[in-house]
Write a protein that binds this DNA or RNA. Structure first.
Length: 425
RNA sequence: GUGGCUAUAGCUCAGUUGGUUAGAGCACUAGAUUGUGGUUCUAGGGGUCGCCGGUUCAAUUCCGGUUAGCCACCCCA
């Protein structure tokens, strides 16, 4: 039959799923605006070179996951993540010169050409924040606390913050040498993937999940032991602040992150109720990025929350917002005979103009069918308009919650009377 | 990109050891209730059994391919 389908890895969010989606957005918006973050909306696409430059040429995202559009001289890519676009906008508008320290949040779709899987699709939604223009370790703590509070606000349970520091460039260069030296001798007993990681990115060997690789990871030299004095101090300052705020975390040397721009603090929030893909938030500090994109040498921190996996997690946890639900509709006007259809339609319009969410029938359904529908839909009031009522200038009203039935004059006072009735129930 | 599993009604799924009218529950429509729901009962509509090809007298069932979904790997929100 070859029915039309949405492109692979994309999905339609129908009205009954929107409440959950919105619930997540609203919860986060409240937390973030309360912490001084302002919303920013950047284009869904950017020059391809922006992502190549910011994420790093050899990263998986750049090498094989970019949705690319080329036409004439333009080479654009649907954004695979939100940080680089925000930094680009910050620099393009010269915000760094007006007031270098700025805090942004964004929410919207991101795109990666990946093989779809549980909690992973080719178009997915992220809520992210970027605090640009400060190297303060307290800011790292604030960003992490925001992530924590976003999840608390949306009512998620059983999530865990994993935290690590990967130092600055010189720390990493030093550690890379040490780690390579250590892994060199163990290469034979590592898995096939690790063989490749050794040259490409040794650090990734540390978060390998293959069982045979675990022992040699446990015994591996720790990054924390090779951080410079300064890096160590700033990490301690961040941890101290988190402790003081009562934000729970676990130090996890396996958190390495896939983009080149990360420095110092890196973290992930995971929810074990999900499958293998259990990360619901990832973030960290990226002190080199603003300079890399031809701006001043300023520090920055941020995170991105995955809306899709968050929704999945809320669903599996049975959160009330997560179950599909129809949009709220308190009032319905039922024409009792065909002669009353237009009158019912016009009454509906009058109530809508008075600010009452109202609907009416367009399918010539029987009164009984309309009552069934109304009951299922969770209506508060059913208005009946028949020949009798119309001739007497009234409407009959049935209150679904109490079951009682009464008449109201169909005049200028009607909307107000209905409103009062809704408020008391 | 790699590997495994799956594909039957709008939804969740059963089923045919290959046999000619393919089933259930939910949902939908109508009636019991001559202008009234939430519980019942009855009836009805709805499926080229993912798509293409092969084996066979016969395929929804077996085989191959393909597409899509799911799960895992890589990587990541």
């Amino acid at each position: 039959m070859a029915r039309r389908r949405a492109p692979r890895g994309t999905e339609d969010l129908l009205p009954d799923r929107i409440p959950c989606f919105e619930h997540i957005f609203r919860s986060c918006r409240l937390v973030l605006e309360g912490a001084g973050y302002g919303e920013i909306r950047t284009p869904m696409m950017e020059d391809t070179s922006l992502f190549v430059r910011s994420l790093g040429e050899v990263t998986d995202v750049v090498q094989k996951e970019m949705f690319n559009i080329q036409r004439g001289d333009t080479d654009l890519t649907f954004r695979p993540e939100g940080t680089a676009p925000v930094v680009r906008a910050y620099l393009e508008r010269n915000l760094d010169k007006q007031r270098p320290f700025q805090k942004f949040y964004y929410m919207g779709p991101m795109f990666r050409f990946e093989r779809p899987q549980a909690g992973r699709s080719r178009q997915f939604y992220q809520i992210g924040i970027e605090a640009l223009g400060s190297a303060s370790p307290l800011l790292d703590a604030e960003v992490i606390a925001c992530a924590q509070r976003c999840f608390e606000a949306m009512g998620l349970k059983n999530f865990k913050l994993h935290l690590n520091s990967i130092g600055d460039d010189s720390d990493r260069d030093r550690y890379r040498v040490v780690l390579k030296e250590y892994m060199q001798g163990l290469l034979d007993e590592r898995c096939e993937d690790c063989q490749g990681r050794f040259e490409r990115n040794v650090f990734r060997m540390l978060d390998c999940k293959v069982r045979g690789c675990q022992p040699s990871n446990k015994a591996a030299p720790q990054f924390l032991d090779h951080l410079g004095e300064e890096s160590l101090q700033r990490f301690d300052a961040t941890l101290h602040a988190l402790d003081a705020m009562g934000i729970p975390y676990e130090r996890d040397p396996g958190i390495v992150r896939g983009f080149d721009y990360y420095t110092h603090t890196v973290f992930e929030v995971r929810c074990p109720d999900l499958g293998a893909r259990d990360a619901i938030c990832g973030g960290g500090r990226y002190d080199g990025l603003i300079a890399d994109l031809d701006g001043p040498d300023l520090g920055a921190v941020g995170f991105a929350i995955g809306v899709t996996p968050s929704m999945l997690a809320l669903e599996t946890q049975g959160h009330p917002m997560a179950s599909p639900q129809a949009p709220e509709l308190p009032i319905f006007v039922a024409p009792v005979g065909n002669a009353q259809r237009e009158a019912a339609f016009l009454l509906t319009d009058r109530l809508r103009q008075a600010g009452l969410a109202t609907d009416t029938d367009f399918e010539n359904k029987s009164l009984k069918a309309l009552f069934k529908y109304g009951n299922k839909r969770g209506l508060k009031l059913m208005l009946m308009l028949g020949a009798d009522e119309q001739s007497r200038g009234v409407v009959k009203v049935k209150d679904f919650t109490s079951g009682e039935e009464f008449e109201l004059a169909d005049d200028a006072e009607l909307a107000g009377a209905l409103q009062a009735r809704l408020e008391q129930s």
